[in-house]
Computed example of a mutant assay.
Amino acid sequence: METGMIEKRIQKQRCTIHITIDQFNKRVRVDDYLGHFQECVEESLKVAKGMSAEKIIFKSRKENVLELLAQGFLYEGSIDKFFLGSDCFFLVKYKRNERRNSEEWEKEDQILSDIQSLPIKTGLDDPPSAYQGRMGEVTDALQLSQLYGKVFEVYPTPMNDPSYVKKCMEKGTVFYVFVHEGRIVSAASAEIDSFYHNAEITDCATLPEHRQYGLMKHLISALEDYLISHGIFCIYSFARSLSFGMNAALHQHGYSYRGRLANNCYIFDKLEDMNLWVKNFT
């Protein structure tokens, strides 16, 4: 699958913005900004208009939230201590009614309510001895791409392409995997922002026939240990709002629910709402 995702740094006279242009998901995302704030907003809207984006996401600092709300942006979620200890707020603007409206919202509310009634687990049961957990290596790129290709019919990034997986690893994304009979059957990664000392746990996938052993919880725990040992203390993750298993894994692992991004990206055969979960180790 082709992603069409481009990260750009736009420098103007009074502002600088770091923006992700995401053609595949028909959205733009402002990841960071500096300088005259109103000019940052205006430049972002110009980029969105130029690519006919249906959704604009602004990762805002606290001091700019009210200004964005005053300009028609909506609050959808937040990440505690994202910017070197300062909170990040996801403010969004929609350019199409269909992109704003979610048909599954009530069902997702019920799933979330059921998950939040589950107890937090303090320990993990060991998986069967046939499963070996370890850090992923560049030589795993082909097997990882095959895993993602099997689990996800459609995915926001081209993880079914081994060259893309290899490129992610070379840029610093860390993978942990479980191997069964010589094949990778479960994997998760951490995309690290070493400047702001945060990381996103993402690309979580387990083959259906191996899901009864709680492998993902072990992978998340291994990633956390790695991140903490490398000075990363703000960890977050997005999970499909309709996925009971993935949201439950994060909740029971001590992550806190911090919002839901509507129609955020294409997974499987449609746009999906994504729940935001956050955990801090400071």
Rank of each mutant, 00 (worst) to 15 (best):
S189F: 11
A188R: 06
I201W: 08
Y226K: 13
A205I: 11
I228P: 02
I192D: 02
L207W: 02
L215T: 07
H218F: 01
T206E: 04
M216Q: 13
R211M: 12
H230D: 09
D203S: 06
H230I: 04
G214R: 00
S194F: 15
H230Y: 14
A188E: 09
A190G: 02
D193N: 15
E209Y: 06
H218L: 03
I201D: 02
E209N: 13
F195I: 14
C204L: 07
A205D: 12
S194H: 15
A205M: 05
N198T: 09
F195E: 14
Y213C: 06
K217T: 09
D225K: 15
M216V: 10
A199C: 05
S194Y: 14
L223Q: 06
I220Y: 05
I192Q: 04
E191P: 09
G231R: 11
R211W: 11
I220E: 02
F195Y: 14
T202W: 11
R211K: 14
M216E: 08
L227T: 01
F195K: 15
T206G: 00
Q212S: 14
S221R: 15
T206Y: 09
N198R: 05
T206S: 12
C204W: 03
A199M: 03
H210R: 01
G214H: 03
S194M: 13
M216T: 04
L219G: 02
Y196S: 11
Y226D: 06
T206K: 07
C204G: 12
E224P: 11
H197P: 09
L227M: 07
E200V: 07
E209F: 02
S221K: 15
D203M: 06
L219M: 06
S189A: 15
S194R: 13
I192F: 01
N198M: 07
S189I: 06
H218N: 03
I220H: 04
S221F: 13
L207P: 00
D203P: 09
S229D: 12
D193E: 13
G214Q: 01
A222P: 01
L219R: 05
